[in-house]
Design a protein around this nucleic acid. Structure first.
Ligand code: MN
Ligand code: MN
Ligand code: ZN
Ligand code: ZN
Lengths: 138, 138
DNA sequence: ATGCGAGTTGCAAATAATTTGCAGGAAAGG
DNA sequence: CCTTTCCTGCAAATTATTTGCAACTCGCAT
């Protein structure tokens, strides 16, 4: 590696400790709300302001390093862009979040393209329903 | 029809003008945010309070007369339960909301049941992506 | 090294969306 | 009617996110 953190400069962004830490936190956490990202960052940079986290998440999303997804009824959660390679199966009863390969959705995605010219991003919203455990219990 | 509005009493709910109007508004609007429902109701009942609308939407959802869906990054929109018979194709570029029959998703839904025992509700979240028009323009 | 200018940050305040407490008012049933 | 319970309006509280602004600092050009 020539010099570290080229990925941020390459996108035309300044390399600040806060920004690096936000990105690292998102990568470490898998998926996380802005609040959770802030919490994680505070481990090494206690002073970080929540609004800085929001702003950096937005900035990092604009340059394609992170993305947001909706797993629940409320706000968004953030992922590292590289890591968004699976569907999220969210159970409305117990709140569990399972994964499934994106290919599972391929026939559906193709049908929407063929019939409507609609290009689906299957990761933006979670797949909502009831998990096997909760179905068994009821 | 024996006597009107049995549907509310049958669910064990009191029949108040506000409640009836909220339900009618949801039915008339197709999909609507709580704010939009309130607006609609105010046409005939100007005094209705927004919190009454929120409370009634929740109540009506609990008894199964309405349901909420997420069409965008933000809050929920409400539908009459009978009316939720299609997918929502939401374009992230232009914001348009198209419809598609639920059957389009059948192979996908079946795959999730077979492979994970996960029962998908395909209407809770919209199907997010880019519409044909926006794809053409870019 | 030094300095400058644009991009960033922290902080406080502003917005926006939704929820809650409470006291008065109205619906259902006897 | 009368009572009980549910429901409503209103104000205040929460929660989530955004914005204005002055101070700061990163990266580039002296
Ligand atoms: Mn929801
Ligand atoms: Mn979104
Ligand atoms: Zn579950
Ligand atoms: Zn579009």
């Amino acid at each position: 590696m020539a010099d570290k953190n080229h990925e941020l400069r390459d996108k035309g962004l300044r390399l600040t400790p806060q920004r690096q830490l936000v990105l690292e936190a998102v990568r470490a956490l898998g998926h996380a709300t802005p609040e959770e990202v802030a919490e994680k960052v505070r481990a090494t940079h206690p002073g970080i302001n929540l609004s800085t986290v929001y702003r950096n998440l937005e900035t990092l999303e604009n340059v394609g390093l992170v993305q947001h997804t909706h797993l629940g009824h409320g706000g968004a959660t953030y992922h590292a862009a590289e890591e968004l390679t699976h569907l999220h199966l969210v159970c409305g009863k117990c709140g569990s979040v399972g994964d499934a390969p994106i290919e599972t959705a391929a026939p559906f995605v193709n049908a929407l393209i063929d019939e409507y010219g609609f290009k689906t991003d299957v990761t933006h919203f979670a797949i909502y329903g009831t998990c096997a455990d909760c179905t068994a219990k009821s």
